[in-house]
Each structure stands twice: as C-alpha cells, then as structure tokens.
Nucleic acid binder design. Structure first.
Lengths: 343, 343
DNA sequence: TTGAAAGCGCTAACAG
DNA sequence: CTGTTAGCGCTTTCAA
C-alpha cells in the first residue's frame, strides 16, 4: 500500500490549513468555506487521490457509522433477504454492517457481541431467534442501541420488527379447513424461539375456532432433519392421523415431504402440507409448496430504519412493527382425502 | 451509551501509567510487564468493564483488522456459504468482514469499493463475476491487497480461488454420454463472467472428445428467467433438438425445467437436465436435480487464507488455487429417449 | 520493568 | 471565512 494522502498533504499543496480542508470536504461544513477555496481544495484532493480516513474521523467523532447484525446462520435462506434489506437502508446513509453468525450458540453470540462492541458499532440488530441467555438484556443495560428483527423482544425493551405470524397460521388453517381437512398436525419449532410459540398458539386458536382437531408436535430445531424425524414419529407412533400438516417453517415442511415420501404417502393426495416463510425456490419443490410469505427484505429495512432513528435522533420509536404476511397457495395442499389411506 | 472506560481510567485506578496498561492487556507485550502488575491491571480492567477501542488502536497501528468482501448478490444461494467460509477463517484471527452487494452494477461496485477503502479495510475479496470494468485492476495499481474467489483473475495479478469447473462440465457430459445422449445443448451464462467461458469451452471440448453433437446457447444472465427464455427459443426456433441440457448453473437449469414443463416435456424421460453448483435444496426440486457440487464454503476459506497470508507476511502466495468439484447424480438425468418425442 | 511523550488523521471549539 | 489548538484512545519508541 503506497502511503495514502492525508488531509495535511492536501492542505499543504492547496496552501490552506488542514482545518479548512476538512471543512471544504464535508457536506455539513462546506458552507463555512469560500467557494473558490473549496473548489481548489477539492481539486487538489482529487489530484492526490485523497481518501478520507474514516477510522480517524470515527475516533474524533466517536461514531463509527457501523452497525452490528447478529444472526444465527446466513445459509438459512430467510436471512440473506433480511440482511439485504438492512443494507439497502444503511448504505445510502453512510452506514456499513458487520454481519456475524452465532450458529445458535450463546457463547459464540457473546463473543461476537463483545468483538463488535470493541469495534465501536453504533448499534445492533439482533435476529437471533432464541430467547434463552440472549445478550440483548445485557446490551440494554449497557445503554447500547439495538433493534430485534424476526423475533420478539420478550421483556427486553428494544423495538421489534416481526411478521404477522399469527395471521399467517390462521390463514393456513382456514385454507385447509375450506379444503375439508378436520385433523391437522402442527410441527412447531423449538420453544426457545419466540416465533415457535406465536405460531403454535395461533394454530391452536385457529383450530379451536374452526372446530378442527389440531395437535402440536415439537421439533428440536428448524431443520429438514428435525421435520423429517418428527413427522416419522407422528406417522409411526402417535396414534394421531392428520390429513394435513402445518409446519413451523419451510425447512420443517421439507422434512415432512421426505417423511411422507418414505412412507409411500403422496402430497397432497394423502396429506396436505403448508410451510412458512416462502423461502427462495419453494415453488420449485416437489410438489411446489403452499406456504406463508413473510416480507423478509422489508423486515430488514424496517429494523434498520428503527435503529437509525434511535441512533440519530435518540427518539423513542414504535416498540413493535408488525408487517403483514400472505398465504401463497401452490400444489402441496389439496382436498382432504375421503378415505384417508392410513385410517 | 454510558461513557465507556478508557485505558486512562484503568491506569489511574491501578496506579500505573497508561502505557503499562496497554502492555499488560496485549498478548504480544504482556511479557514486558511484571506479572503482579499485569494481573492487577487486568483485575481493574474487568472491574471497570473496560473494552478496548479498536478504532483508536486501528488509527495507531494503521490496520483495521477488517476485510472487504464484494459480491454481486447475497440472495444468490452460492454466496452465503462462501461468505461463511470466509468468516470462519477470519473471525478466529480477529478479523471482521464487510460484505457488500453490487447487484451486478459497475457503478455500485466502484462506490462500495471506495467506501471500504475509506474504512481502511486491510484487503479485499472480490467475488464479482464479471470481467468488464471491474475495479480489481485499479485496486492492484493502488497497492491494495486482494484475492479473487469463484472467478478468474484474468490479467489482474491477484491470486484466485476457483472450483474446477472444466472438470465438472466434463463429468456432466460423460455422464450424459454414458446414458446414450448424442445431442446436448449447453445454456451458458453471460460471456462477461469468467466462469461462463470456462464452462462453455469445457463443454465444447468434452463433446468433441466423445463424438457428441453439442451446441452452445448464451443466456443474458445467470437467472431462472434467462434459462427459461433461452430454452424456449431452443425448443421453438433453433432447429436443434437436444435430448439433454447442460446448464451453466442451477438457476438456468431451473429455468430449463420451467420451459420444458410448459412445452409438455418431461424430465428426464424426454430431456435430461444437469445443473451446476448444487445450490441448497437442489435435491428437493421437481425432479431432484443432477448437478455439479462446488465446495463453496471451502472456496471462501481458501480465499480468506490467501488474503491473510498476503497481508500478514506480504509473502507471495499461489496465484491460483483450484478446488475439486463433484457430479451429484439425482433424478433429472436418465437414458436418452429412443425416439425423441419431438423428432 | 515502567514512565514519559509523541503521534496515528481527523474534527470541532475558539479566535481572529 | 480561515487559522490555531487541542484531543479522540491507543501503541510505541526512548529513557530511566
């Protein structure tokens, strides 16, 4: 790296004081400088290939223009759109994001959180789903700005941006009800995730409203494997014979697909399946999956917006933003079988 | 944010000089300090909740312990594993990554590149596929450390980490050849991507070797839509009637699926399809996709390794690392039809 | 082994 | 409108 030009170099060559260069080059202060001087400074800066050092600026202004984004796992397909949504709001405002993955480990989360604090991030966006020993509470006590996305804040007084999961589940159950289903299983995610709870409760409530027999089964993780093994145990040993399954998310639904296929059952002729999230390419599965679309990109945008509000105006903002979801009906749901093949 | 404790606060409370605190708290220099003093300093630091300010440190040491990662689009499923691979190598070494998305725009790429230079990143990983006006050349002239991943460096003397695409295509064609296919189409990606060229050339060479009639068609983008419309035009107006398609990547292959389905053709009975990348859930498509698996995570790890080598030891490293790929045979390929339905 | 002092590059408060 | 000065928090040379 050739030694980069500094503000002092520009000042020398332009024959002005470094302070003047700083003023000429900054939007907010360029009005304080003679237009001629300013343009001369800019010319010299360009000539020298001067690039402001935002580390130095950050030290002086004690703001790094940087946000920490803590997610469980970027390869989980719901997170890339969230991250891009966040970034789409931050980038035009001069902020950059550090995105880190916890892989569901509290210890990792704590470590990464500390390393981002060291890096002087101006705030955090937490998308880690579990509600166990999350560091959000501690962050709050340290006076750190943050927002929750895709999870509830559960006692921690940070704003939260979530999809209307309850509504999505309700629509799923109603859709199945209209197709004649009267025995429906819900494969719920781990109870430590706030989303699991909301969805399971909404499922139970919707079934009760519609006079449908609904049973909840808990998966140990939001994964294909978990979905498959839970569905296996429903089919093999639960005594409950659903004609439809409402899965806690698309990954679990995919696991249900696998289990059903291995049991020689077809979708939707024998059993209908509904997912949750409308992950990319859900329409290309076998069969194309009926699922609830959550506006992940917008979730990201909103969370970034709320965070910057907090940071820049220290204004109190809405404690909770709930975005609408939409049931996408594809081919994995159909009329309830007249004589369920496994009765 | 309550004012954070600084090194000066710790020094005062521990009754030592700030310089001593710095030495006591840094791995490399703690040997220069009396063990007793050091442990007293550490105790005070913990008591005050002291967190080192890495911005200040960066200013002093002129190293931000930060890497810029420039990709086209995080929601393209090949990138999350690459990014996680990069991060898995960086994080344990104290580095963090800024990941930015260009959406294929040169202007955006330039803008983001400059903003990362301002942020004093210690190096770049370029995963932007196109070879047009990439800023890599300019970066090199400015003496900036960088590595290319999943694309060739094409004249720019940065190290590159790529999958063995040619081998993957060769295996695909051989696989189809063994199944009896003698007329194969290749839907290639845009010629501005180095991967497109490598794959297309390998396709032509493999067909020649095996006495197979192979035709190359160019898609304007690596997308489902592009794959579909190119396949449409192959079927509707090209005069060439392939019994198999080797797609430039999985997205194009998915487009081919759509086109075939709309033309009333079944996969693989009428036409076999091979993808490239083995994106997540490729095995859950309809039908499960035969495709070439590229070790994306490892591509990321290797690129980070090469970059840190360059940065930390300024050692010259391998100019090119090529990782092996693997053909994953699923259900989208089958025997060539005896009497192709559209002959 | 520790203290003193300088300075990384920038911005901001204060003069003039 | 511009120059002066100080200092953000840290590391690091030089002395002691």
């Amino acid at each position: 790296m050739s030694p980069r030009a500094t503000i002092a170099d520009v000042a020398r060559l332009a024959g002005v004081h470094p302070g003047t260069v700083s003023r000429a080059l900054n939007r907010k202060t360029e009005g304080q400088v003679n237009a001629e001087t300013a343009s001369r400074v800019r010319a010299v800066a360009k000539q020298l290939g001067y690039v402001p050092n935002s580390i130095a600026r950050g030290l002086r202004t004690s703001s790094s223009m940087t946000i920490g984004v803590i997610i469980p796992d970027l390869t989980n397909p719901i997170f890339p759109p969230i991250v891009r949504g966040i970034d789409s709001h931050l980038a035009p405002r001069g902020y950059s994001a550090f995105v880190v993955n916890t892989d569901g480990s509290d210890a990792t989360e704590r470590l990464l959180f500390e390393s981002l604090v060291q890096r002087q991030v101006d705030g955090f966006i937490f998308a880690t789903g579990h509600s166990g020993h999350s560091i959000a509470g501690e962050a709050y006590e340290r006076g750190i700005r943050a927002v929750m996305v895709n999870r509830d804040s559960r006692g921690v007084p940070y704003p939260a941006v979530v999809g209307d999961d309850a509504q999505g589940i309700r629509e799923s159950v109603e859709h199945l009800g209209r197709l004649g289903h009267r025995r429906i299983a819900h494969i719920a995610g781990p109870p430590t995730f706030s989303t699991s709870q909301v969805r399971a409760e909404a499922f139970v409530a919707a079934c009760a409203d519609l006079g449908i027999r609904g049973e909840v089964f808990r998966a140990p993780a939001y994964s294909v494997e978990a979905g498959q093994s839970v569905m296996d145990s429903v089919l093999d040993g639960s005594g409950f014979r659903p004609t439809a399954v409402v899965a806690g998310n698309d990954l679990l639904a995919l696991g249900v697909y696998h289990s059903l296929r291995l049991h020689g059952l077809s979708i939707p002729e024998d059993v209908s399946v509904v997912g949750f999230n409308d992950m990319p390419f859900a329409g290309d599965f076998q069969p194309p999956m009926t699922t609830v679309r959550t506006p992940h990109f917008d979730l990201g945008v909103e969370s970034a917006r709320l965070l910057l509000n907090q940071i820049e105006s220290s204004a109190l903002t809405a404690l909770r933003v709930m975005l609408p979801v939409e049931l996408i009906v594809r081919a994995s749901t159909g009329p309830a079988p007249e004589n369920p093949s496994f009765d």
